[in-house]
Simulated scan of single mutants.
Amino acid sequence: MVLETATHGRALLVTLNRPQQRNALSAELLAALHATLRAADADDAVDVVVVTGADPAFCGGVDTGELARTGVMPEYTSPLPVIGKPLIGAVNGAAVTGGLELAMMCDLLVASERARFADTHARLGFLPGWGQSARLPRAVGDRRAAEMLLTGRFVEAPEALAIGLVNAVVPHDELLDRALAMAAAISDCGQAAVRATVALMREGAGLPLAEALALERTAALRFQGEGLDTSRLPGG
């Protein structure tokens, strides 16, 4: 199977499983990812999705062998579908080009000490088409993003943490435990608020500050108007 899933409490662990191809995104794997995450989004038993790769790589990007044979770029407009639940990327190894774009779609990133990050679109003579030129500058700043996008150089795990590309770097054998602990902490929160916050952050990410503040105020008033769950409050 090109994709494996396992349930851990209220988290769904999704593992890209093409290790001999460095978990490259074939048409089959992309279809499986989209179907699996859409199903998780509709499953009331799932609060959080954790995405990782079968060692040694996280994801080597689009399957260039398949691309060379077919001459057809993947039909999907993103490596993952947009879902309403938090996504945690557990980056166990190299996340390259389309694999980095996949990682950048996650709300939180935990990296193994073995993780490496690079965007090689320009080296290969391509333009990114899954959001890299927009998401990467927002994550690490314009100049660092420009260096990664224009030179294709690899960023090792410690530097990725220093520049804000990932939330944490942990020993390799602790990666999944850390990501699943983060998922459990999210599950302990009020899920209506979690999903509303995810939507708010994503929608406000590209807005000027004044518009983002207005968006938050409108969302908060609407959320309050739908009835607050006071049971989680101290003394509630």
Rank of each mutant, 00 (worst) to 15 (best):
M1N: 07
L3D: 02
T5C: 01
T7S: 13
H8K: 02
L13A: 08
N17H: 14
R22Y: 10
N23I: 00
A27W: 11
L29I: 04
H34A: 01
A35N: 09
T36Q: 05
R38A: 11
A39Y: 03
A39H: 07
D43Y: 02
V46H: 00
V48Q: 03
V50W: 01
V50M: 06
G53H: 00
F58C: 03
G61P: 07
G71V: 01
S78E: 05
P81C: 09
G84N: 13
L87P: 13
T97S: 09
G98F: 08
G98T: 08
G98Q: 07
M104K: 00
M105I: 02
C106Q: 07
E113F: 08
A115K: 00
D119Y: 06
R123I: 15
R123A: 14
G125H: 11
G129D: 12
A134N: 07
A134L: 09
R135P: 06
L136V: 10
A139P: 00
R143D: 15
E147P: 03
L150V: 14
T151S: 09
P158W: 03
E159N: 08
E159Y: 03
I163E: 12
V166R: 00
V166I: 07
V170C: 05
P171N: 00
H172T: 04
H172W: 05
L175W: 08
I186L: 10
D188Y: 01
G190N: 15
V198A: 09
A205H: 13
G206L: 00
L207P: 02
P208M: 06
P208Q: 02
A210Y: 06
E211N: 14
E211T: 12
A214I: 11
A214R: 15
E216G: 12
A219Y: 11
S231E: 15
L233S: 09
